[in-house]
Design a protein around this nucleic acid. Structure first.
Length: 965
RNA sequence: GCGGGGGUGUCCGAGUGGUCAAAGGAGGCAGGCUUAGGACCUGCUGGCGUAGGCCUGCGCGGGUUCGAACCCCGUCCCCCGCACCA
């Protein structure tokens, strides 16, 4: 009696131990074997691994296990990312007793109380999650070579040395340069305020305003705008009478700006010296000069002007800015207000909008039109913003500049905008500043500003030559799915210089600039190279200081003489040579997989840096991109409380169930959705599979090979081909689906169909089946495999090869014929509502087959016409004898032939004439069982046939005629 | 707004010009097996139909074609990313 049930934990632990004992996932260079080097981006250790990590990494592991079975020397290493600020930030929050984070650590991450206390130390925290993470990775059964494990930062000195070498090399090659950069900045914390450090203003980033410098006596009024082209339509200025303005020297010029603006500009690398403060009202009613037209224009009161926004100086273009038009209209209606500021109401009344942009669907003054159309009453109407945005978008995208704009006339706004800004700056009438379009508040409750950092170190991802190389690397690589290729190209073009050093957090200090550390996305770009040598560093106890730049130059670039390097570094020449050999053996990376969110950053950086540092033959060979995991239909998030750690999932469902459920969730860039219900169903499927295979293994004996045996082996070959191709292209869902369900259905059909199932056929099928499933559910397959073959791992068994010789088109087409016939029979029974006692089948006679195949042959090259085909067919004497019936048959069959797909025609031609009578006789008892009726089989011309309704002549190839009573 | 992906039957999800009323799975219904079953097996799961057929149908509206879920144009909607951060 075979045991028909099992405990996941038991078999998983058993096989994990066996694998570790046999060291089957430890891979060393073997020049005789082709290698395969796959990687998963090391996870950041500020928390436990979650199911999303599990999803992506399982895809890597499936590929790795498959390749290993294909005979590749396969290396799948693992490491841990500690670089960055969040771990330090979290430790600080624990230290300060932040309730929110403590609750999250306890409830979501499951950190025990006594451990939690130690989390005030960020390094302890990282170590804790690393060791928890490693347990989870082992439990889920990834085929990792753990000898190559490491973590990042200066706490792993040899890795740190590797990063130093990388950055010194990049700098030497001119890829790292010094520059300036605007960041959202907290004046209190004196540090950049990232999205996660904000109370308010998530997603808000610095925007660059153009400042147009209008003349006012010996000073300038720098008005801020995103639409500098509208200077041609300026009619007046607005200042807030109640706001505080200053006169300040800014880089040697006298500017009039809001008090707040002066502070902001001083943080943007401008020398600012405030001369005096005054209320805006002081300037209301005075005149300024437009630098383009030299017209003198009035300064009007505008309470809507926000001194917190940019310079607090606003110029007015009523033709194209709804807010400006409304503000003027409001003033016209309040002559007393104007008089209070000493302004003659006639001055405002006489302001005429000046049109400068021609735009479809609007007349001279789009702003005036939209205000009227929307019925906006005054400047306090909330729809002013909406109107502004509609006009702005429309004019930017489709607007054509009018003659008043001089050299820009006739061009589209969006095409000349940047040129125009350059020109204005050149002419000294424009400048720029950064500001935030919305309020941003730091976690410390201070309002943030934009600061331009100097002395910043940048990776020059904006460099066109470097971009070119990155594009080339993408073009040379395989990208799964292919649709992601365009995404990469787009993101490579879009990337600009990347500030690659930070002041705070864990990491590797920038070697030439103390006080800076290499930023987290920048120290994780070529570390896969480190996997190839870290094993030797450990084995030979090599210290960081021995790993000089020259040593790395030798290992990774092949530069220098190992003997001399040995002397200088104290590392044996043989060891150096071995490391060099190991690097060149494993490199390049054959596959790297991540979720699509990493395309614009990590994966693109990975590509960029490989092209900067390595020759083309060492550029990555393939990149896989996948979707992002949702839990029960919702995006996974700690704050929403639907966060599922990898470890929890495995404990609850087992490793194989977790893996297979994930793999069946989605492929390509689709987002998989984890549902407990699915996992449960997969669990019961796998238990069923276990019983099913056990029963098959228990079968004894042998019997003769029938058409249905050939059918099963042929069908299984098709499954092998599909699964193999799918995994090759990282279509892991398709592969899992076919390997599990389609193969199962094939075998099920075989068992139902075959009079007496042939154990030999079944065992062959099962051996293939287990191996096809092994990359997905390695533990269960290992268990099953050992029931078949003692002492051999399925993990290292040979992948089933597609055997062309076992493809039997005739057997497959025969089976299709029988299935179709059963469906037709069933349909008749259903419609007529009879309970059949007797079912008669009449198979088509030889001449029909001859005509049918001939028509198909002809139709491969051209459409078959009645006349031509009849002339052709009449050449054969046996058909000529039946000319009348042939002609009727051909007429009826013509359309079927002409609309059949080429593929199908080829299959049927290859199958040739089926001996339908023999096939049906072979299936007779099966059909009788299925329909619970007597089955009678005749040739249509059989004079002995029972055919009371004269249906026999309806027989066609592949469609025997049917009579039921 | 820009860029990428997508809208298919109750649900998830295949499907890129004819083999498509549309794979596979889930759910539902019916039957079988069984002491019982949330285990297993079989069938059904758009509508109509007393003979293997017909009609409707793949976000919406047009078009190309002998023929369209698949190609073209327009349109609406959904998801993801948009930077100093893992």
């Amino acid at each position: 009696m075979i045991v028909m049930s099992f405990e996941w934990k038991e078999i998983e632990e058993k096989w994990r131990r066996e694998w570790e004992k046999a060291r089957i996932f430890e891979a060393d260079p073997d020049p005789k074997r082709e290698k395969c080097f796959v990687t998963f981006p090391y996870p950041y250790m500020n928390g436990p691994l979650h199911l999303g990590h599990g999803f992506t990494a399982t895809r890597v592991d499936v590929y790795a296990r498959y390749k290993r079975m294909r005979g590749f020397n396969t290396l799948f290493p693992w490491a841990w990312h500690w670089t960055g600020e969040p771990i330090v930030g979290a430790a600080l929050r624990v230290k300060s007793g932040d309730k929110e984070i403590i609750r999250a650590l306890k409830e979501i991450d499951g950190v025990p109380e006594e451990e939690l206390k130690k989390f005030v130390d960020p390094v302890y925290m990282a170590r804790y999650y690393t060791s928890e993470g490693k347990e989870a990775v082992k439990k889920i059964g990834f085929s990792i070579d753990w000898r190559r494990e490491f973590h990042t930062t200066s706490l792993e000195p040899t890795y740190s040395r590797f990063i130093e070498w990388q950055y010194e090399t990049l700098r030497k090659k001119g890829y790292v340069v010094k520059g300036t950069h605007p960041v959202v900045w907290c004046p209190h914390c004196k540090s950049p305020t990232g999205d996660h450090d904000r109370l308010e203003g998530e997603g808000v980033s610095a925007e660059e305003y153009t400042l147009l410098k209008f003349q006012f006596d010996d000073a300038y009024l720098p008005a801020a705008t995103f639409r500098p082209e509208t200077i041609y339509g300026v009619t007046n200025m607005f200042l807030n009478p109640d706001a505080t303005y200053v006169e300040a020297m800014v880089d040697g010029e006298k500017w009039i700006i809001s008090k707040e603006a002066a502070l902001k500009l001083s943080e943007q690398l401008k020398r600012v010296k405030v001369l005096r403060e005054f209320k805006g009202s002081e300037l209301i009613g005075k005149y300024f000069v437009d630098p383009i037209s030299k017209r003198k224009l009035p300064i009007l009161p505008g309470w809507f002007v926000d001194p917190e926004s940019a310079t607090g100086v606003v110029y007015s273009v009523p033709a194209h800015a709804p807010a400006d038009w409304i503000a003027i209209k409001d003033l016209v209606n309040k002559p007393d207000v104007l008089r209070r500021f000493g302004i003659d109401p006639e001055v405002v009344k006489s302001i005429k909008p000046i049109s400068l942009i021609e735009v479809d669907g609007y007349g001279e003054y789009p702003a005036v039109e939209i205000v009227e159309k929307m019925g906006i009453k005054d400047q306090f109407d909330p729809r002013v913003d909406e109107a502004t945005s509609i006009i702005y978008r429309k004019e930017f995208h489709t607007g054509i500049l009018k003659p008043i704009t001089g050299k820009y006339a006739g061009k589209r706004v969006q095409d000349v905008k940047s040129e125009l800004i350059e020109d204005f700056k050149e002419a000294g009438i424009a400048d720029s500043m950064y500001d935030l379009p919305e309020k941003v508040v730091c976690r410390c409750t201070t309002r943030c500003i934009v600061k331009v950092l100097s002395d910043q170190w940048f990776l020059r991802y904006s460099d066109p030559d470097w971009k070119q190389l990155a594009h080339e690397a993408i073009d040379r690589a395989k990208i799964y799915p292919e649709a992601a290729r365009a995404y990469f190209h787009d993101k490579i073009d879009w990337l600009h210089d990347w500030a690659c050093a930070r002041r705070t957090g864990l990491g590797t200090p920038l070697p030439w600039s103390p006080g800076w550390i290499v930023e987290t996305l920048s120290d994780s770009t070529i570390y896969m190279a480190f996997y190839t040598i870290v094993k030797h560093i450990r084995k030979h106890d090599i210290r960081a200081e021995q790993l000089t730049n020259e040593v790395f130059d030798y290992i990774f670039f092949g530069e220098g003489d190992p003997e001399k390097l040995a002397e200088a570094s104290g590392i044996d020449a043989e060891v150096l040579e071995e490391m060099r050999r190991e690097f060149t053996y494993w490199y390049p990376v054959d596959l790297r997989v991540s979720a699509k969110e990493l395309v614009p950053n990590h994966l693109s950086f990975f590509i960029f840096q490989h092209t900067a540092l390595f020759p083309r033959e060492l550029w990555p060979r393939a990149i896989g991109v996948n979707g992002m995991l949702a839990i029960e239909g919702k995006k996974m998030s700690k704050s929403k409380g639907n966060f599922l750690t990898l470890s929890n999932a495995i404990d609850k469902f087992g490793a194989d169930v977790t893996r297979l459920t994930l793999m069946l969730g989605a492929e390509d860039m689709d987002d998989p959705d984890w549902r407990v219900e699915n996992a449960r169903s997969i669990d019961s499927k796998l238990r069923g599979l276990y019983r099913f295979i056990n029963e098959i293994i228990g079968l004894r004996g042998d019997s003769e090979e029938k058409s249905i045996d050939r059918w099963l082996m042929s069908a299984i070959q098709g499954r092998i081909r599909v699964v193999t191709e799918a995994i090759e292209n990282l279509k892991t869902r398709t592969a899992a689906e076919v390997a599990l369900f389609e193969v199962w259905n094939d075998i099920r059909w075989y068992l139902r169909r075959a009079e007496s199932p042939n154990p030999k056929t079944l065992k062959e099928a099962v051996e293939i089946w287990i191996r096809l499933l092994a990359p997905f559910t390695p533990y269960l397959c290992e268990e099953l495999w050992h029931l078949l073959k003692k002492g051999e791992f399925v993990s290292t068994a040979e992948w089933p090869s597609y055997d062309e010789s076992k493809i039997d088109v005739k057997a497959e087409e025969s089976e299709n014929m029988i299935r179709d016939l059963m469906a037709d029979t069933g349909s008749i029974i259903e419609v007529t509502k009879m309970t059949p006692k007797k079912i008669c089948y009449y198979v088509a006679s030889g001449w029909k087959w001859k005509a049918y195949l001939e028509m198909m042959r002809k139709s491969l090259s051209a459409k078959v016409e009645m006349g031509a085909i009849m002339r052709e067919l009449m050449k054969a004497p046996d058909l000529r004898k039946e000319a009348k019936r042939v002609s009727a048959y051909v007429g009826k069959t013509l359309q079927e032939i002409n609309t059949m797909s080429v593929d199908q025609k080829k299959r049927r031609l290859e199958a040739g004439e089926l001996n339908e009578k023999a096939l049906l006789n072979e299936a007779k008892r099966f059909l009788e069982r299925e329909f619970k009726a007597e089955i009678l089989i005749y040739s249509e011309d059989d004079p002995q046939r029972y055919d009371p309704k004269k249906r026999a002549s309806l027989a066609k190839p592949y469609r025997p005629a049917i009579y039921i009573e």
